[in-house]
Design a binder for these strands. Sequence first.
RNA 1: GGACCCAUAGCCAAGCGGUAAGGCACGGGACUGCAACUCCCCUACCACCGGUUCAAAUCCGGUUGGGUCCUCCA
Length: 444
Amino acid sequence: MKLTNTYTGNLEEFVPLKKDEVSIYVCGPTVYNYIHIGNARPVVFFDTLRRYFEAKGYRVRFASNFTDVDDRIIARAKEMGLPESRVSEQYIEAFLKDIESLNCLMDYYKPKVTESIKLIIDYIGQLVEKGYAYVVEGDVFFRVAKIADYGHLSNRRLDDLIQGARVEINPLKESPLDFTLWKKTDEGINWDSPFSKGRPGWHTECVVMIDDIFGGMIDIHGGGSDLIFPHHENEIAQSIACHNHQIANYWLHNGRLQFEGEKMSKSLGNVVLVKDFPYHKMALRLFLLSTHYRSPINYSEQNMKMFAEEWDKINSTINSLYRKIDLSDDKDAPRNIYQEVDQSLKAFAEAMENDINTPNAITELQGLIKIANIEIRKGKDIPKLKAIVEGILFMLNILGLKPDLIRLSEGDIVLIRQWEKLRHEKQYAEADQIRAVLQEKGLL
RNA sequence: GGACCCAUAGCCAAGCGGUAAGGCACGGGACUGCAACUCCCCUACCACCGGUUCAAAUCCGGUUGGGUCCUCCA
């Protein structure tokens, strides 16, 4: 399998650190609000990556954190008149509910900053001890100048960074590039540390959690492309400082989601929350996978209708397949192997092997859907229908698209037979009555 | 101001040196008692200008138009 590694800029053959096992860490949300569909992109993509690895037979160890200590959470807590912990708990719960609605696998490591404070303080202490960090009036900063390779991931030169810096220069820092590891404060939630009473900066949590969960290098570190600089760059710097090695063999970044051609962000206020998505959640997932993960993707209400209809078609084709099988006298016939189906599956796998090309994988899915509809029309070859339905479900499972299956009850079968009989006898008035009932039940 | 990315039909989107996949919409047809569903057919001088090459949507340079990061953001 090939993946584009941001660190090298190349499409590379994936080789795991341990045979048959893959470790993946994805930067998770800061839990101060509901997530919007842009936040859902990395979640869905990396879930799909995980599913594909699992389908290939790997054991996947997957982790994604909750940033539950942050200025925005503190601000939100004030606004809501609640303690920070209540705010973050509430949005963690909402996050999990949202990603479950997108059919993401829910069993993964979910570390929280508030539960990692001791490890974070120890880690910062080590950085100070080794001379990679310095304490000024209770604040702790990372000494970027000590990392020769700083800027490698984000492909930046230090000079450009310094020149481009528009932030107000913090006089406590030795260099404007130095970033905060620990911030002295008594506002909001805080902890005692050897440096001061305060709270950790954002960049240390992920490295610490990765160490804690995986105990060293991991295979894949992922997140949105906006995290490349400075967050991931800083993670690498800290890891090199502390352990003298990188964090991950492969860095994967997904492109940004835009809203009607504009950036979607909480600060611009043009967000569409996952929980408020106006169509079937699987249409949203289908949409998110319809563009290659590295490219930008544009959300527009107009397009969503398209994906909603496409999802309906996929879903109803599966149900038609099952209906045909359930109504057949031959329904216990074993499935068979068919070249068309196998070719689709092969092409599907090839697409996924090639840097998780989900748009092409979806094309293969659509091809099988078409084959399904042709066979449904022909009607008789139950083993083939079974092979097709199996193939479709296999693809859907990897893409994390969960169909709403409607299996026929005995009563439904009787009803459908009756409808067919009445039509055959040209008793259309009665037939249409039954048809209305069947349509109501979603069986046609 | 600095760094970087993108530009393919009405819309979404593959392709990444050998002569334009797929989906939606539109139009035409088939199926049907009438519908719905479904199927078949049809739809592209690959932003523009130059260059490299036997060959370019694909590589190089420039122009224009979008976007991203440098600052909280997935």
